[in-house]
Design a protein around this nucleic acid. Structure first.
Lengths: 189, 189
DNA sequence: GAATTTGCCTAAAAACTTTAGGCAAATGCA
DNA sequence: TGCATTTGCCTAAAGTTTTTAGGCAAATTC
């Protein structure tokens, strides 16, 4: 009996690829076993459960996204940085729809805190150093940017914009213009 | 054998309640049958499939949301209307998390066109009549508003904002201030 | 009251999840 | 090198969900 060499890591990476190919909600322990040509039960030495697999894929995606974001932000500031970060999210979602969906998985609070989610918030905050916002407003702005990035990407990928006229690339760049303008002239309460 | 009086409509409404209680992804034909104390197969006279059930719950949610939005917008304009619409989404998501999740279900294009999704876009556009935007910019703004509303509500409900300081109500109202300011001074390309 | 339709049933197959226990390959150690 | 232990994948089996097919009795129609 030849051993395939399964590890949690290989399984999670394969699960992420599977997610991109067939959709995150189609990722199943059975499908993964099939992909490795191995019996289903064998995966349970490496994964606690189906939920465990999904959580690990989510954490992988959050990590990859944070790495890309860190890369993109290096040496940039102001609108340049804003655009770069925004494009990281949008491009990642297009290249890896299954992983992006995974990154949206609701994590329990402890897992969330240990995840790269924290890095994401920090990087968004870093962008705001290029603008002139006082502390409480920075937090509001971090949340607003997160909402726009995530909301836009989700709606665009879900086909929410597909039936109307101006193409979405145009809206995307106008949205970034608008956000930049907003951050430069953040309204008082 | 007493008849329970199942109909597609009752099943869908019960499915929506179930979604709010246990989460949309836990909604299953089996669970629904259990709730009516009826055998699973009996539901298949009223529902084509599990997917069919989910789609119908999504359509119900979109409809309810559109009805609430129409109500809220009646007699309002400008920032007043903007705030009202935004709060409809946020409140609905809080009151009916399962239904709100259902509303995010990806529908096939024909179903989407027949859904209340169209009404949502129209109402968002109606708000923009209170601001001074030319045609292509209106579409960009509709998309931006949709992104912010959906993104914010999703992140807030997913706990994405829960570990930081200023409370989310404050961010929400500052976000609406910011959007209002942005629409009043929409930047040229 | 008989005929038809309708509603819920039993039965059964297929897929996924998860646990328990087994055997052989890999690894560690004298 | 040879033996003991650990590790990796296996078989077996039970539980859940989805879906189809066919049956019987209640409700509706005439």
């Amino acid at each position: 009996m030849v051993r395939v060499g399964l590890t949690t890591d290989r399984l999670v990476r394969a699960g992420a690829e599977l997610a991109d190919e067939v959709g995150f909600d189609q990722v199943t322990v059975s499908a993964l076993a099939r992909r490795f040509d191995v019996k289903v039960a064998s995966l349970y030495s490496h994964l606690k459960s189906s939920q465990d697999l999904k959580t690990r894929i989510a954490l992988l995606a959050l990590d990859e996204l944070a790495d890309r974001a860190a890369d993109a932000l290096a040496g940039r500031a102001g609108k340049d940085a804003l655009t770069a970060l925004a494009n990281v999210y949008r491009d990642y979602a297009r290249e890896h729809p299954g992983r992006y969906a995974a990154a949206q998985l609701r994590l329990d609070p402890e897992t969330a805190l240990a995840s790269a989610g924290v890095r994401h918030a920090q990087m968004t905050r870093a962008i705001l150093r290029g603008y002139d916002l006082t502390e409480p407003d920075q937090t509001h702005a971090v949340r607003l940017l997160g909402s726009v990035f995530h909301g836009y990407v989700t709606l665009e990928m879900g086909g929410g914009f597909s039936h109307s006229a101006p193409d979405t690339q145009e809206t995307w760049s106008r949205t970034l213009d608008a956000l930049d303008a907003l951050l430069r002239h953040w309204p008082a309460p």
